[in-house]
Design a protein around this nucleic acid. Structure first.
Ligand SMILES: [Mn+2]
Ligand SMILES: [Mn+2]
Ligand SMILES: [Mn+2]
Ligand SMILES: [Mn+2]
Lengths: 250, 250
DNA sequence: GATAAAAGTTAGTCATAACTAACTTAATTG
DNA sequence: CAATTAAGTTAGTTATGACTAACTTTTATC
């Protein structure tokens, strides 16, 4: 539950105060209690409380009725958080295409909960996309197009999916999407069990009831068996069994 | 600061209790206060308090000295959270290669702070990598190799970087890495300003002091100007100016 | 320089979410 | 079945982090 900026554990709230003070100090000559309150959308008295705690930890200074300043240690931590904020914002907004306003909010929420390790992995990833010519290529030309249903690969299942995400086109004919068509790493919702008799009962017992969400974990080399995670359990299915489970994308 | 599972706002803590109860209910016949306490590493009395709040909101039932159950509404929310947890775990662990233990912790931390919109964008991305043949291809063959310095593209800057991330190989010779070599979306730390005289002063005034982190925002089509974000400001630099700023990867 | 407005502070309240210590009830076992 | 142990509960405490209301200080304005 505690945030983990690997060093000393500050609360998410205090980290945001530090971050806000740093940003404000670069926007204005002097940072006042009121500026912080406005920026973080809290009352001035909440800011006062936070400043008291930050002062105790020697991360900020605040003379009564006067301006607010960060200590060098405070500024260092603040800068780290701000860097994370911007990194996550770039990742969510520019790469994953989360709307910028949402991305802004969520960056500021999760920046407090990621380890340096994870930040580094995200950096690697961004580095690849932006710096490696192949990354730029595959990203712009493949991913972006694939998302828009314009993938140039004939075997791309994404391409065959109707916008509703419920049917698949096979040699011109539309057939319902079943578990058999899904590739690993993809989450689907069970729509209908089309099996009859014993197999039907078995599938239902295994937990494949309509409405249930599941996650396709792995498909063995020859497409059989298929490993899915349903309700936290890992289950194995034969390919022909999987064809009796109609699903839709979630 | 509040978590945002788009519906009614439960606290992150209560969401974790729901999640834990759901998981336990699938592992055992009956869920007891003690099981939850052990799983979440809190005292039984904390569990009691949480159960009281959950019961008030009709998400769980708990008979004194008896077993704990989720209501249908509670189970629904719990499943949503669990789905997010697993999705994020897959993303961090299998795709970004964050060590699984860390990924586990962080998934459970940030699952409470992401909107459905963002979850959908992550799903899109995973879908691409796992379902689109080109995604599988580019991911396994390009990204993974690129990270290991085995990129097949001669122009890949990643490939030229020494492990220390401080020098770059240009026609066999090693030269220090400067801002000129960096591509957009990448964060670097200023190592040294090699400019002299007036330009040096100007660069320092602009905020390019050693140790400072900056983020390369954009490079114009012809490599000039270069737009960087330093200390929250956006600054524009000429390519020849950028060559006077030695940097290292962060 | 008096007065009003803006900014800042303090005290007191509330909710969440954890804890320990002391107690009660249920389950096991000799 | 009495005694012991395990499980569960309650009361009381602590810390964070927000709030409002009432007050004080600073700043602006006439
Ligand atoms: Mn934040
Ligand atoms: Mn932030
Ligand atoms: Mn969680
Ligand atoms: Mn979780």
């Amino acid at each position: 539950m505690k945030p983990s900026l690997d060093d000393l554990s500050l609360s998410a709230s205090l980290e945001d105060y530090l971050e806000a003070i740093l940003v404000l100090s670069r926007e204005k000559k002097a940072v006042r209690v009121r500026d912080i309150a406005l920026k973080l959308n809290v009352s001035m008295s909440s800011v006062n409380g936070a400043l008291k705690r930050l002062t105790e930890q020697k991360l900020a200074r605040h003379e009564r009725y006067e301006y607010v300043e960060l200590t060098p240690e405070g500024a260092l931590i603040a800068q780290k958080i701000l860097d994370r904020h911007n990194l996550l914002l770039h990742f969510l907004s520019d790469i994953l295409h989360v709307p910028v306003e949402q991305a802004e909010k969520e960056s500021c929420a999760i920046e407090h909960h990621l380890s340096q390790e994870t930040i580094d992995r995200i950096l690697d990833f961004i580095f690849f996309i932006d710096v490696c010519p192949k990354g730029v290529e595959s990203w712009k030309n493949i991913y972006e197009k694939c998302l828009q249903g314009e993938c140039t690969d004939d075997n791309c299942s994404l391409r065959k999916l109707r916008p509703e995400g419920r049917h698949i086109k096979v040699s011109g004919k539309e057939i319902p999407l079943t578990l058999k068509h899904i590739k690993p790493g993809f989450s689907v919702k069970v729509k209908k069990i089309t099996a009859k008799g014993n197999l039907r009962k078995r599938l239902l017992d295994m937990g494949f009831s309509p409405g249930i969400l599941m996650y396709l974990q792995r498909v063995a080399p020859l497409g059989d068996p298929i490993e899915v995670k349903v309700r936290g359990f890992n289950l194995s299915l034969r390919k022909n069994e999987a064809d009796f489970i109609e699903v839709e994308l979630v």
